[in-house]
């Protein structure tokens, strides 16, 4: 198999032009995913414009009012508007998940490339560490980290990022090992190109295409981990509006009939995660048609 980013991109573009015909449902999966993400990102960006109330406003309406024309998704016990909190909450979860995925991909990709390229004891040790973290339930590690750090956006981002570094590391290291042996890399090395140039010019472009798919899926997972952590009461102060936290707050109203407090944040978390998973799924099948047959 040729590790060529242009070929992959070509397939992607080819797909766009011959949309639907060639790839069928996979394209629809991709497009729906992208639409969901786009919609929620737009909602997050325009939050101050579209939210009917300030998400912290404790006099937005009556206490624990069910959904109505005035408060589409009802109000909570502090008389805040649930819809506005949902709209603003998108900012937190998107921010944390994307930032975490960025951090883990940057760290994972660079470590993976260097490790795979340099080999030796450094590579062995690092691989061992990464493999151990990888095989362990990530959420449990994230819980441990998040509970120990001081609550805040940064802590939770780090807790989420840490557990995905091995995913990128393993992927990129494996590819680097293969590419390293390719003729064009060998020849570059033979004419005396510095290692950094080889890494940047020959190896990086080859690994980046596959990581794009992993990245998308990764954001989807990170969304669920972020929400899980805040649901468990770890990680964020109340001045930040967050879906997982609202879900946890609404939980105690479960038997007293205020269903809207737990229903909507959960629906949003699922939808957003679904968006990223569908996008990743679609991308994977289009970029790598072999997967399609599986």
């Amino acid at each position: 198999m040729k590790h060529s980013p242009t070929a992959a991109m070509g397939r992607l573009i080819g797909g766009f032009t011959g949309m639907g015909r060639k790839y069928g449902a996979e394209w629809w999966i991709l497009i729906i995913g992208a639409l969901i993400i786009g919609g929620i990102i737009l909602m997050a960006l325009l939050a101050p414009l579209i939210a009917p109330y300030d998400p912290h406003d404790q006099a937005a309406g009556p206490q624990l009012a069910p959904p109505s024309s005035e408060h589409l998704l009802g109000t909570d016990n502090l008389q805040r508007d649930v819809l506005s909190r949902i709209i603003f909450g998108a900012r937190t979860i998107l921010g944390v998940a994307i930032l975490a995925a960025l951090i883990s991909s940057v760290v994972g990709i660079s470590l993976g490339m260097f490790s795979g390229y340099s080999g030796g004891t450094f590579d062995k040790t690092l691989s061992l560490i990464m493999d151990s973290v990888y095989s362990f339930p990530g959420l449990i590690l994230a819980i441990t980290f998040a509970a120990m750090l001081e609550p805040g956006i940064m802590s939770i981002t780090i807790a989420v990022a840490v557990i995905y570094i091995p995913t990128y590391f393993r992927l990129v290291r494996g590819q680097t090992l293969t590419i390293k042996e390719e003729l064009y890399v060998e020849s570059a090395r033979a004419i005396g190109a510095p290692n950094l140039v080889i890494l940047g010019k020959y190896i990086f472009p080859n690994v980046i295409a596959t990581t794009a798919v992993v990245f998308t899926m990764n954001v989807g997972d990170a969304i669920m981990i972020e929400a899980a952590l805040t649901y468990l009461g770890l990680g964020l102060p109340p001045s930040i509006v967050d879906w997982g936290m609202d879900l946890a707050m609404g939980k105690k109203f479960l038997p007293s009939g205020q269903w809207w407090l737990i229903t909507f944040p959960g629906v949003m978390i699922s939808t957003l995660a679904l968006g990223f998973t569908m996008l990743g799924e679609g991308l994977a099948e289009i970029l790598n048609p072999r997967l399609l047959e599986r």
Partner: peptide
């Protein structure tokens, strides 16, 4: 795909 994206704790709730 959908069931995979539903947070397990929320489904529980």
């Amino acid at each position: 795909i959908v069931i995979y994206c539903i947070p397990v704790y929320w489904l529980g709730l």
